[in-house]
Every structure is written in structure tokens, then in C-alpha cells.
């Protein structure tokens, strides 16, 4: 069953979004670490949408859709902000001395680590859609 909710792109809504996807993950039968993985991936993705696609808070909405299949849970995030090229985001280097590490790219790195599959689509009609799949 699909469940879609729309949230204003503001950091104060991250907790509500987290609760929404957390409940869907629990209902799908994921264990504690699986639920947390989905919540973390979605939080990082929504933060990136607010900061980078919209360029700040209160500039657009985020549509969050959850779908449970027999073998997985699918989370879809849609925004209408600026598209980007995921391949242009470097893999973060954290095996560096403390003074030299930089924050860039950690969010996307975490999303990839937490989910089994992710896909970006950028369209002028339907906005930017990030589909994330986690196996049960």
C-alpha cells in the first residue's frame, strides 16, 4: 500500500518525516537497525533537498511516499528544486587526519550505505525523484 505525505521543506519537519518512514519500516517488519538505516537515509536526503535543491528552508515542498512490497520497502522523495548530477559528488575521504576532513558528500555516502538500491530521476514536469529501496 502506498502512503504519500507532503511536508514543507523545513528542518523542523525532519522529525515528522522520520516518524512517518519509521512507522512504515516497522510495519514492513524491519528490525531496529533496519528502521534506523531508513530514517537516517531519509533524513540525509531531505536535508540535502532543503540545503542544496531548494537552497534553504521554506522554499518548496517534499513529497514523501512509502510503499511496502513482499520483499522490500520503497521510499520515494520528490522535490521541485534544482537538479544535480549525483556522479559529481565525490566519495568523502575520512581516512585523513582530523584537521583535514571536510563535510562534503557525507549525506549521499550515508544514503548509499544505508539502502540496498537508490535511483535519481530529474524531470522538468514531475520534479526530482529519489527512489530508495531497502530489502526486508
Amino acid at each position: 500500500m502506498n502512503n504519500t505525505q507532503t511536508f514543507p521543506g523545513r528542518f523542523e519537519n525532519l522529525e515528522d518525516i522520520s516518524q512517518m518512514v519509521g512507522k512504515a519500516a516497522e510495519n514492513a517488519g524491519l528490525d531496529d537497525s533496519g528502521v534506523y538505516a531508513i530514517q537516517l537515509a531519509v533524513d540525509e536526503a531531505c536535508t540535502n533537498i532543503i540545503e542544496h535543491a531548494y537552497g534553504g528552508e521554506g522554499r518548496g515542498q517534499i513529497d514523501v511516499t512509502t510503499k511496502v512490497t513482499p520483499t522490500s520497502i520503497v521510499i520515494q522523495l520528490r522535490d521541485f528544486g534544482r537538479p544535480f548530477d549525483p556522479a559529481s559528488i565525490p566519495v568523502p575521504q575520512t581516512n585523513l587526519p582530523l584537521e583535514e576532513i571536510q563535510p562534503r558528500g557525507i549525506g549521499l555516502f550515508l544514503i548509499r550505505k544505508m539502502m540496498d538500491d537508490i535511483k535519481f530521476e530529474f524531470t522538468s514536469e514531475n520534479g526530482n525523484i529519489l527512489t530508495m529501496i531497502k530489502k526486508k
Binding site: D43, T47, P103, I106, G107, L110
Partner: peptide
């Protein structure tokens, strides 16, 4: 209950 990368930074 939760720490995002913003917290780690």
C-alpha cells in the same frame, strides 16, 4: 535517539 551527519560534523 538519532544523530544525522549534521550532528557528527
Amino acid at each position: 535517539t538519532f544523530v544525522s551527519s549534521a550532528g557528527w560534523w
